[in-house]
Design a protein around this nucleic acid. Structure first.
Length: 280
DNA sequence: AACATTCTCAACCGCGGGGAG
DNA sequence: GCTCCCCGCGGTTGAGAATGT
């Protein structure tokens, strides 16, 4: 038996996206919004599977993406969130505006894991590696969740969640303690099971954000510390060609305002920028 | 300069959850 | 309750870049 394939593998293109394909995808979503990924490729004239389109959009083309390496502060947040949530990358990503689950997952596997091991911390358990505690190369998914269960009754903060790590990381005092810290302290560990809490309080859940529609698109330009990876992607050809005055902090706070207050109209802010994309 | 090795990350794959009928 | 379908998630892969010899 087996599952029906999501698309005809003979008829879909795979591998890296071309600038032309990106343009088609952006164009289509601008006009129609995000809907029915399965039929999107056909409607947009793309020889891609819907999944691939969704991935491309959510990970690379979405205008609210913050590109470049994770800052030390973001890294700290990822470590803390991972201690609480385990490998639930999308949940972790939802607390880091502008970051995708894929990006965080990659960063965890390539950078943070190594860093923690160097520090003598088991990335799976977030506990110091001891002689009688073999380093588990393949973390049990449940471990952090067990921690999570234990912590359900106590307030969550970086220092509560992973004191060992936080002590080690605290020497990075140049880290700016921005107001965004409140997001980490407000995380509701049981958000999977208790959706009623979702709309209460002041926590910002990016996964609560409405599906992006063309009029809601906010463009973020390449950060000045962008990495080599951005230059290898066809997307970046499009994105880097566009020069916008963009300030992440300002725009994030505007976006936040927008998400929290329906009466702010992002239309004028955004649509003009996107018209530039399509002219490329 | 040439080759080998390691690293990075974009993209793919398969599965599970959940809504619709 | 069952089946079908779609979406999103997490794990994995592999091509290209970077680094080492």
């Amino acid at each position: 038996m087996g599952r029906k394939p999501c698309c005809d593998k003979d008829e879909v293109k795979k591998g890296p996206w071309s600038a032309e394909e990106d343009k088609k995808l952006i164009n289509f979503i601008l006009i129609n919004g995000q809907c029915c990924w399965r039929s999107l490729p056909r409607l947009a004239g793309l020889l891609r599977c819907g999944k691939s389109c969704r991935l491309r959009w959510t990970n690379y083309l979405r205008p609210d993406l913050k590109r470049g390496l994770l800052s030390e502060y973001e890294e700290k947040m990822v470590i803390d969130l991972h201690a609480q949530l385990g490998n639930r990358w999308s949940k972790i990503a939802s607390h880091l505006p502008g970051r995708t689950d894929n990006e965080i997952k990659n960063h965890w596997n390539t950078h943070i894991k190594k860093k923690l091991k160097k520090m003598g911390i088991d990335p799976a358990t977030h506990q110091p590696i001891t002689v009688d505690q073999p380093n588990i190369e393949h973390p049990t998914k449940n471990q952090p969740i067990i921690q999570q269960e234990k912590q359900k009754t106590m307030p969550i903060s970086p220092s509560h969640a992973v004191p060992e790590i936080m002590n080690i990381l605290d020497h990075n005092k140049e880290l700016v303690e921005t107001p965004i810290l409140s997001t980490i302290t407000d995380i509701k560990l049981d958000d999977d099971n208790n959706n009623n809490n979702k709309n209460t309080g002041t926590s910002f859940y990016t996964d609560e954000a409405p599906v992006i529609k063309p009029h809601e698109i906010l463009f973020h330009s390449e950060s000045t510390t962008s990495t080599s990876s951005s230059s290898s992607s066809p997307t970046s050809i499009i994105l880097e060609d566009m020069q916008f005055d963009f300030n992440w902090a300002d725009d994030f706070s505007r976006t936040l305002d927008y998400l929290l207050n329906d009466d702010i109209d992002m239309n004028n802010v955004i649509s003009q920028d996107w018209s530039k994309v399509l002219e490329v």
